[in-house]
């Protein structure tokens, strides 16, 4: 879209592909990812605490913090931009510990999340908040895989192509956000 170099990246991620990224890299994601936001995270954590199986795989996967608008006829999904990530900060470290490799949202995150990325080899992507139509355009298929009763907050499996994100935090403690220092 600009003169900035864009890295094409396949999903799901591996430790190697996740850790090759650096804060500020402009990325196009290709492959599957899962949507989950506040209510779905509460349910996933309750299952983990109860020692039960999760409705989605975590190993190598990327969770997208998004609650889309209803899909109009003929489209896989409605507007699907990111929601603010900090509300999921309490949940993210445990999910990264269990093999999650990436999350996508908007805004800064806690030191705990950044430490988890470094410890477990993960990455945090920033999608452009409010770019709901553009991002929806890059979703080629979507299906609800858990919690349909949550409506926009259900867990969906999306197939994305050329889905534009920017690396916010990388696995070596780097940050793309103004006013933050790299982890030491």
């Amino acid at each position: 879209m600009t003169g900035t170099d864009v890295i094409d990246l396949g999903l799901p991620l591996t430790e190697k592909s996740a850790c090759s990224l650096r804060a500020g890299d402009v990325i196009h994601l290709n492959g599957p990812l899962y949507t989950a936001r506040d209510a779905a995270h509460q349910r996933l954590m309750a299952l983990i605490e109860a020692g039960e199986e999760l409705p989605i795989p975590l190993e190598g996967q990327v969770i997208y913090y998004s609650g889309p608008t209803p899909a109009p006829p003929g489209r896989p999904i409605g507007a699907a931009g990111p929601t603010t990530s900090y509300r999921m900060d309490d949940f993210a470290p445990e999910l990264y510990r269990r093999g999650l490799r990436g999350t996508i949202g908007k805004g800064n995150r806690s030191a705990h999340v950044r430490q988890a990325l470094r410890r477990f080899g993960g990455v945090y992507f920033v999608a452009v908040g409010g770019a709901g139509a553009l991002l929806a355009d890059r979703v080629v298929a979507a299906e609800v895989v858990a919690y349909p009763e949550l409506g926009p907050e259900a867990i969906r499996r999306l197939q994305v192509e050329q889905f534009p994100v920017i690396v916010g935090y990388d696995c070596v403690g780097g940050t793309a956000f103004v006013g933050e220092k790299p982890l030491t």
Binding site: S66, G67, P68, T69, P72, R75, G78, A79, A80, G81, T83, V128, G129, G130, A131, G132, A133, L134, L135, A136, D137, P152
Partner: peptide, 15 residues
């Protein structure tokens, strides 16, 4: 995004 919303009729933002 504004162009795509205009062309597709999708909302600008999911919120």
């Amino acid at each position: 995004n504004a162009e795509r919303a205009d062309e597709t009729g999708l909302p600008l933002c999911q919120d």
